[in-house]
Design a protein around this nucleic acid. Structure first.
Lengths: 347, 347
DNA sequence: CAGCTCAGGGAAAACGGTTTCCCTGAGGCG
DNA sequence: CGCCTCAGGGAAACCGTTTTCCCTGAGCTG
């Protein structure tokens, strides 16, 4: 590859001068004529600077890393990762930043690999990390030299943590309030993974909404689970078993599923048990996995994952350039998408 | 970050010696005792070599680039990219290689960016490139220094081209032969994008199978299209219009759709036109998008995209290490997946 | 004991940039 | 005319590795 010295020779200047011109640094003290000569020489030779030499010399690498800890086939199967990456990439492409993907099985593996992420390849890290507590954050913060990072899809509380996420508390509250506004008073909660940050927050929103409306909180109709359809199926079964015979009348008239996947599972199970939706029971989800949700008429709270990815990209860029400071938070406002799975309570 | 000099100081040897020990190079001429001292010092300091300094010094970067030219949201919407990336990543993770993603709008944009890919960041490139002809391949081959690359999902002919793909000719032949074996003699072809390499090859398989069976080739029932469901819908409409009234009897008894997506569209349209599938018309696809195909009972030719990704990863690694030579081809054997959308021709 | 061999490890160049500091010469001013 | 200033650009150190080449000293041989 053509080196800067060849350009220098071609333009009859020193390598240092070439560098200054091409980086527009100290261009005040390089004559217009020389600048033109250098640029033309670079063009003629077909010169492109080596990103690694540049990195070694202390410059930015113009590259960021994206760390994900999911299963192996998660890009295929997970509904979050694809849109999120699409969002990140759309920004970085236009900023001419390189994006390096680190896909780990779990966060402990990621923890082990921090030195690998921080070996100079990247200027910063976007962590797609849904877990509430994981030491990776602390390790990253104590890293020298400090590697800037943002948390995507995670809005945990913490000093100086840069988070980009859906406003999950509001989302939980919005879903619950919607059901309340339809007259529902007993609203089941089908939770997602207990160790996910979003789960805590959506639950908080649920309780807040109940409290604001003066409705009692009943732990009997809060069902732990995971963010998968199977969990929705399973919890309908549990609920059905719980409210049978004499207890029949205590059955909730609405279910707040903490994700669309859970809701899809719930819808499927309700059909199996011949519980008519929405007349007997209303169902709301969170996410808006549009194609399927539309098809099944699921009322849901929309989050735009792609947009979260984009905002995260921008935040990390700002962080790496020192334009924003750690601790910046950007929480996306949720949005209610009305379809046919929620109706007013039948008296 | 701790540098090699600090390790050297700690172990009371020279930096060169540290390098030799840690890379196990010329370890014949370093005493066991010294080796142990160096390793221990490195451990104590928490030393991790800078990948970029290493790269500058002429070593491999242990990083490869993946270039894709699709739409912006392709990771979300395209059924090929996700599994393919999952496959690539699964291999590179265990080889401790970094993966840098380049997502371009189209191949011309990619062409512009070749110097960017080749700026030293990556040791090689995996091109997920379905187009038959594109100058990017030539440009890459004339690049100095040469950047090794493999073509994924593309098995065009060409001197010294390393290709990993489904054996599309066989797949086309297999689909067609399956229909022929069921007694079908007029088999429509719903093609994918005309400029995709796979389209040409699947079509060749179709014609080969017809010829081998002594069946006439009728261009009237070959329908150009694109690899989307809409195209299947559209072509059923065209076929329906074409074979109406007197021509009714000339209507094909089977459709070979060049992808599952096309087939899904076709199934939908057939239902709309009240053409009963499979009794009136059989349908076969290619891909095996398992969940949906299973749900709709689509008979199809399976390709394991994830496995293609994995093999591509391995090939590129071999190429970058000089263990295999350009020109290596690895074509996956297709596999017939029988479901309910194809039945024997009703006499 | 002189000379040779070889194990063990150090010195320094090289990779390709960036950046700091300094030098040179021209123009302006007293 | 002499001195000062400043624009313009060059020299060289530096970033953190790898790698080649060479040096040293110990052990062996004749």
């Amino acid at each position: 590859m053509a080196s800067i010295r060849e350009v220098a020779a071609e333009a009859k200047v020193s390598p240092g001068t070439v560098s200054k011109v091409l980086n527009e640094r100290g261009n005040a003290s390089i004559s217009r004529a020389t600048q033109a000569r250098v640029r033309e020489a670079a063009e003629r030779i077909g010169y492109h600077p080596s990103s690694i030499a540049r990195g070694l010399a202390g410059m930015r690498m113009n590259a960021i890393g994206v760390v994900m800890a999911y299963d192996e086939e998660s890009l295929t199967s997970d509904p979050y990762l694809g849109p999120c990456l699409d969002g990140l990439l759309s920004i970085y492409k236009q900023e001419r930043q390189k994006v390096t993907l680190f896909l780990e099985q779990n966060w402990d593996a990621a923890l082990q690999n921090i030195p690998f992420y921080g070996d100079g390849h990247c200027d910063g890290l976007a962590l797609i990390i849904p877990r509430t507590t994981h030491p990776i954050v602390d390790t990253l913060r104590s890293q020298r030299p400090h590697l800037p990072f943002v948390l995507v899809g995670d809005s945990r509380e913490g000093e100086g943590l840069t988070c980009i996420d859906l406003d999950n508390v509001s989302a939980g509250r919005m879903a619950t309030e919607h059901l309340i506004s339809l007259g529902h008073r007993r609203i089941a909660a089908f939770q997602g993974n207990a160790d996910f940050c979003s789960n805590d927050q959506r639950f908080k929103g649920y309780r807040d909404a109940l409290a604001s409306a003066g409705l009692p909180y009943d732990p009997e109709i809060v069902y732990p689970g995971v963010y998968f359809a199977e969990s929705g199926v399973e919890n309908v079964r549990r609920m059905q078993k719980q409210f049978t015979g004499d207890n029949r009348s205590g059955r909730p008239s609405a279910i707040f599923c903490f994700s669309d996947s859970i809701a899809f599972g719930a819808l499927e199970a309700l059909r199996k048990y011949d519980i008519h939706m929405p007349t007997e029971i209303s169902v709301i989800g969170i996410d808006d996995l549009t194609t399927t949700a539309q098809q099944r008429g699921l009322t849901t709270i929309r989050q735009s994952v792609r947009s979260i990815g984009q905002r995260a990209a921008i935040a990390l860029l700002g962080l790496a350039r020192g334009e924003i400071t750690p601790g910046f938070r950007d929480l996306q406002l949720p949005e209610l998408v009305l379809r046919s799975s929620t109706v007013a309570l039948q008296q």
